[in-house]
Design a protein around this nucleic acid. Structure first.
Length: 327
DNA sequence: CATCAGGGCCCTG
DNA sequence: CAGGGCCCTGAT
């Protein structure tokens, strides 16, 4: 375990309106031991330029204070680049007004926006990290995904202690180079072991560059991602908005999401869901901001589940029967 | 006990 | 372009 004792505090201003909690906590994400959230605060490990850091974000109405914990003093340009990255990753410069203007005309969306004004999409991970997460999501239930990521952290991550929290930090690409595929199978990654080894190799050898891809057209981004072994349309469907902030696109709905949208928009039971094609067409009404619309609607549902519980949803998420004996 | 379906993707025919 | 196989886990 590594104790991080050096601290630097920075204020980041954020475009208004801003909702800290809805931006820095996504209730649809499975719990993972690299972060911890409570209202107003998020603790997050962050591997930046191969240096493991502990971050503590504290929110207010128009800014985020970030405390950067490290094991040695960080130089100014390093900190500046990190702050830029935080702003990018959490969309802290996003102008939401145009989207809100369009959404006004939509009954459902305008109600949701009233509730979640200032919510931004966003994900803290690097593309490499996101792909690892995407891989452990494949063909697995939530519980199994959680287990796989935890096993990876315990074997290859760095446990950090900062601000009284102990959280795992991701490793850098190349870490798995000397690890035999068999070892990854032992920690229950199954056939995904091969995928993860190959992703690690590709990123280590700079065959993918997250920062260059950021500025490429969506078509290129899609093509480059699909070239990677183990990456298909479902993973790309999450990466384009979460990593590259592409809002004008929505072309994939996985089976469990299909069931949820069918219930939400057409009040159809999971046994007889609305076709994916029809659902995608439904979201066309939100134009160039359809991905923001999807995000708002989706997050609203998951916050509801967190705060009030949504009975029909539980069955679809596969949590109720085993882990919660009351339902 | 055995069988089966997952929050996909690759590979083959 | 359809469909089998892949890892593991828990439901049936």
């Amino acid at each position: 375990m590594k104790k991080l004792t050096s601290v630097k505090s920075i204020d980041i201003s954020v475009t208004k309106p801003f909702n800290f909690d809805a931006t820095f906590h996504k209730p649809d994400h499975f719990p993972s031991s690299d972060n911890y959230w409570e209202p107003g605060v998020r603790w997050q490990t962050w591997c930046w330029r191969n240096i493991p850091l502990g971050l503590r974000f504290v929110g207010s109405i128009d800014k985020v204070k970030v405390e950067i914990y490290s094991d040695k003093i960080l130089d100014g340009s390093f900190v500046d680049s990190l702050i830029d990255e935080i702003v990018y990753k959490f969309n802290l410069n996003l102008n939401l007004n145009e989207f809100y203007e369009i959404a006004k005309k939509d009954e459902l969306l305008s109600l949701i926006i009233k509730k979640w004004r200032g919510l931004r999409p966003g994900h803290q991970g690097s593309l490499y990290e996101y792909l690892i997460i995407g891989t452990v999501l494949q063909n697995a239930t939530v519980k199994r995904s959680v287990q796989m990521l935890q096993n990876l952290f315990e074997n290859f991550g760095t446990l950090l202690e900062f601000d009284g929290k102990q959280l795992y930090c991701f490793w850098s690409p190349g870490k798995l180079d000397k690890i035999p595929e068999e070892k990854l199978r032992e920690i229950k990654l199954g056939y995904r072991a091969k995928t993860i080894k190959r992703l690690d190799y590709d990123f280590r050898n700079d065959l993918v560059n997250e920062f260059e891809l950021r500025n490429k057209p969506i078509k290129t981004q899609k093509e480059e991602l699909l070239k990677l072994y183990g990456v298909g349309p479902a993973t790309v469907g999450y990466i384009l908005p979460d990593m590259f902030h592409q809002w004008d696109f929505f072309d994939h709905i996985s089976p469990w999401e299909q069931k949820i949208y069918s219930k939400l928009f057409f009040d159809k039971d999971p046994e007889t869901p609305v076709s994916v094609k029809k659902l995608i067409k439904f979201f066309e009404r939100y134009g160039e901001y359809k991905q923001l619309a999807v995000h708002y609607i989706w997050q609203d549902l998951w916050w509801k589940r967190k705060n009030e519980s949504v009975t029909w949803l539980e069955k679809l998420i596969y949590l109720s029967s085993k882990t919660n004996p009351n339902t």
